[in-house]
Structure formats: C-alpha cells, structure tokens
C-alpha cells in the first residue's frame, strides 16, 4: 500500500526529478555509454564496447600531471579559503558586538558572489598586470626596479582568482555555524579561567567543523571542475583536467573526453561524499 505522505512527497518532488533526470542522470549515463565507444575521427561515434578510452587516459603521463596540477590548485585554494573564511567569520561573529553591523558587514562580503565570475577574474588585470597598480606602486616606492612578471598569467594569479571567488563559500557556512554558538557559553568558559586558545580549540573549532565541511564541498568541487580560471589567469601556462577535456571536445574526440569526464566525476563525487560522511548537511542547514 502506498502511504499518503509518500504520495505527497513524490508528487511535490516530481518537478525536481523531471529536471534532474533528463538533465543530470541521463546525460551522465550518455557520457558513461560514450566512454566505451570508438571515435570515427569526424565527431561521430561508433557504437561498440571498448576500454581503449580508459586505457588511453590511464596510460598517458599527461593525465597524472593534470590531476596533480588540479589537485595542487584545489588544496592550496582550499587552505587559503578556509583560513581566511574562518578568521573573517570569527571576527564578524565574536568581535563585532553590534548584531546589525555584523550582518551588514557579512552582506558586504557576500555581494560580489552575485556578480559575474568572469568579470571578477579579468578585473585583476589592471592590478596584477606588468603595468598594473601593484607593479607601479612597488616601482614607485623603489622596492623593485623591474616589474614583477609572476603576478599575472601565472599560477600565482590562478590562486588569487580562485581565492577571490571562492572564499565566500567558506564564509557563509562558517559564519552560520559560529552564529549558533551560545555567547554565554564562552563567557562562562572565560570566567572559569579558560584561555582564549582553549575556547578556540574546545568550543569554536568543533562548532565550525560542519561549516568548514560544507564550504569544502563547494570549494573543492568548483576548483576540480573548473577550467576557465586556469586558462585565463595562467595565460595558457598551466593546464587543468577539465581544460584538457575541453580540448578533446574541441577536436571532436568525444569518447576519450567522455572517459576522462567519467573518471573526474567519480573522483569529485568520492571527495564530496567522504566529506558528507563527516557532516549531515541536511540537518545542518535546517538547524
């Protein structure tokens, strides 16, 4: 027998499924199928079953370099976003005593999230470029006499752009979980003679854990799935997993692109789900 609550649930969630199935489940299955096919060299696919695409991906020395490069960007960006995100949230929650001011400053941090990522990326050009403000300033002050070349179109620029775009994904959930800490708990701990470091370690960090986990899901999955920041900000000097995939698509090599898409997706999903094991985000958001 079908329970009434089940029926309502499925009815109300069916529009969501009507989007997710044709635009997420089916496309992924199609990619999966394509990854076992052969390319005819003209953008078409021959419907056979072959493991060559996967073998090709795993044989390639390039694959490991790409994953290493992407993982490096992901980890560095994650580290910066977490550290900055945590301290900015900590400052807003514990040091700004006026609630309204704290919310105002919080909104100030979130506004750029609602503007174009590409624009925010290219907006570093007038600052980091060879004749950009930073080089101009440093040379004007006599600190350097040659413009610093590594500022733009380099790995440094890639990291700057990522951190610029993604720290907000850490600030929002960490701010949210820190806001739930009962301030009187901290005052009580201070009165009981705990040091600020103890409070940080035993009260604040455990509470921030779920926020950090949620933020990590966003930061890691976005960096791993990105290619255009690397392409633009590195000036072509660095590559990324998705960037290589995009080039495969550009030369109509769909089956090999599909094979590396499947591998990448599995890795991203594995990373995300291992984080989900640590934190029940559904409960966390609804709390």
């Amino acid at each position: 027998m079908v329970k009434r609550s089940d029926l309502f649930g499925w009815l109300a969630v069916s529009p969501l499924l009507l989007v997710l199935i044709p635009f997420f489940v089916v496309p992924f299955l199609v990619i999966l199928a394509a990854s076992f096919m052969e390319s005819d060299g003209f953008g078409g696919m021959i419907q056979t079953f072959t493991l060559d695409n996967y073998i090709g991906v795993f044989r390639s020395r390039l694959t490991f370099d790409l994953y290493y490069e992407t993982a490096k960007f992901a980890v560095i960006t994650w580290a910066f976003a977490t550290v900055i995100g945590f301290w900015v949230s900590y400052f807003l929650v514990f040091h700004v005593k006026n609630q309204l001011l704290a919310i105002g400053l919080f909104l100030l941090c979130t506004v750029p999230f609602w503007t174009s990522n590409i624009i925010r990326m290219i907006s570093w050009i007038p600052l980091l470029g060879k004749e950009g403000l930073i080089n101009q300033g440093l040379m004007g002050a006599g600190i350097i006499d040659q413009p610093l070349a590594f500022l733009l179109f380099s790995n440094f620029a890639v990291i700057v752009a990522y951190v610029h775009q993604l720290t907000i994904f850490m600030i929002v959930p960490i701010f949210n979980s820190l806001s739930k800490i009962d301030k009187s708990l901290i005052e009580a701990a201070l009165d009981a003679g705990s040091s600020r470091f103890d409070i940080l370690r035993y009260i604040v960090l455990p509470m921030a854990k779920s926020g950090i986990a949620l933020g990590s899901i966003f930061v890691l999955s976005i960096v791993m799935g990105d290619f255009f920041v690397v392409k633009v900000m590195s000036g072509g000097g660095s590559a990324s997993v998705v960037g290589a995939l995009y080039e495969d698509v550009g030369v109509l090599q769909y089956p090999s692109a599909a094979a590396s898409a499947v591998i990448l997706t599995l890795i991203v999903v594995a990373v995300v789900f291992s984080i989900l094991r640590v934190v029940d985000i559904r409960r966390e958001i609804a709390r």
Binding site: P27, G225, D226, V242, A261, L264, T265, V268
Partner: peptide, 10 residues
C-alpha cells in the same frame, strides 16, 4: 557538484 563542463558535455 558535478563539474559544469562535464554536465554540459553530457
């Protein structure tokens, strides 16, 4: 969380 380009390709 699926990479956007992968989904677009699919």
């Amino acid at each position: 969380v699926v990479p956007g380009l992968v989904l677009g390709l699919g």
